[in-house]
Design a protein around this nucleic acid. Structure first.
Length: 142
DNA sequence: GCCAACGTTGGC
DNA sequence: GCCAACGTTGGC
């Protein structure tokens, strides 16, 4: 059974359409330790919601982890050694009906979800129950 | 544009 | 080790 995640991207910087066009994309630039530890926990075949932050504020698609954590190629050489990581993700399919932040916040079945509780965390775990519920809301995989 | 949350930096 | 200052994220 796969683990479930949610990753955020500002569509200005990198959008779902670009993810689809590129098919496989390195997920780089994470500079937060909790998010990094989540990246390191991802395994081949894990699935993640692709969330548009700031513009849109909705879950728009599903991606699959196709390469586990490796050194982030976007790291700048600096005075201190760093160990940020990237993973590769492949677009699976869009949600037929995107699920908005407003919907997630107002749904009693989704209380406590990390997306809301840790609003600044860019890579969040999702419980299997929440995953299934959001898939239903989004008409995904029906 | 504003603000809350929160991580990081640097003075002490 | 504490804490004020500051920067960033991201919702509103």
């Amino acid at each position: 059974m796969p683990n479930y995640w949610l990753v955020k991207s500002e569509p200005d910087a990198f959008s779902w359409d670009q993810q689809v066009a590129n098919r496989i994309e390195p997920w780089t630039g994470v500079r937060n330790h909790m998010a990094k530890s989540n990246l390191k926990s991802m395994r081949l075949g894990d699935l993640a919601f692709f969330y548009h932050s700031n513009i849109g504020r909705e879950i728009v698609g599903v991606v699959e982890i196709v390469r586990e954590a490796y050194p982030d190629p976007s790291m700048e050489p600096g005075p201190k050694p760093q160990d940020w990581v990237a993973v590769d993700m492949q677009a699976r399919a869009p949600l037929p009906q995107p699920v908005t932040l407003a919907t997630i916040k107002s749904d009693p079945a989704l209380t406590g979800i990390a997306l809301i509780r840790l609003s600044r965390l860019s890579v969040c775990p999702i419980s299997p129950e929440h995953w299934a519920h959001i898939c239903t809301l989004g008409g995904y995989g029906a």
